[in-house]
Design a protein around this nucleic acid. Structure first.
Lengths: 126, 126
DNA sequence: GACATTACTTACATTTTTTATAGTACCATA
DNA sequence: TATGGTACTATAAAAAATGTAAGTAATGTC
């Protein structure tokens, strides 16, 4: 869609890895600073652009747009535009997007556990 | 350890997100072009630096070092140096690192499924 | 006609990540 | 003295991701 250089080593490496490893392929799709949070919120149901922006206080409109477009291009998110003025656009997870739920949940559990461990380690050392 | 600017908006955003969302915290730890593949290989057992390099033909030594150091700093990987010449260094997953296994597996399954879907979609459209 | 609202877009700047290339230390062996 | 192997480090540059700031379109209401 824009800005990625198909002649770079980086591009070639990413392609090769994604071809070989489905987990890397998956990680590329949901990788990006805000993708996971966006998906997390959308697990609860449809949201409008402005609602997402409010839920993610520090995101810029540009970033939100970019991430949503990427998720849309990956068929994780479905975008519905209502022909109204002012415009209304709703975002919701697709079926395959919704199937990220257990992964996100497990990541969350693992993160919590790791965080606890890290805290404990720090405390031990001081 | 180096190269990250603690005054940037990006840094602040990452921190804030990781604080709130354990899944983002987790994603930050295993995010990075090669981290997941490295972990995948290490799920099968210890590997030496040179062995990893051979398994990841396109990685540069610098990148391999960086990713391993990052994983080590996050307590995902344990590094053991043997006082020999030429040097021998072994890498293996820690307990918490090993607990990534089900996540990686699920990511892999989801990736496979998504890949199939993407293929089918493309074929349908042509 | 000016203004408000929503979901963007555009141009540009900065930061972060990844790649490229050339070293280094160590010592055993030739 | 030179060579080889291993696991790195240093420095620079390219590429990718993210952030900043301003503007746009459409139209109903004041």
């Amino acid at each position: 869609m824009s800005g990625i250089k198909e002649t770079s080593t980086n591009y070639a490496n990413k392609q090769a890895l994604a071809d070989e490893c489905a987990e890397v392929y998956a990680a590329n799709i949901i990788g990006g600073q805000w993708s996971l949070v966006i998906c997390s919120w959308l697990l609860n149901g449809k949201l409008r652009f402005g609602e997402l922006r409010q839920l993610l206080p520090n995101i810029t409109e540009r970033m939100l747009t970019l991430q949503l477009r990427k998720l849309e291009a990956s068929h994780i998110v479905k975008r519905t535009v209502y022909a109204e003025v002012p415009p209304r656009v709703e975002y919701e997870l697709t079926a395959i997007g919704y199937e990220l739920k257990p992964i996100i949940k497990r990541l969350e559990e693992w993160g919590e556990k790791h965080k606890l461990m890290a805290t404990r380690t720090l405390t031990d050392n001081e």
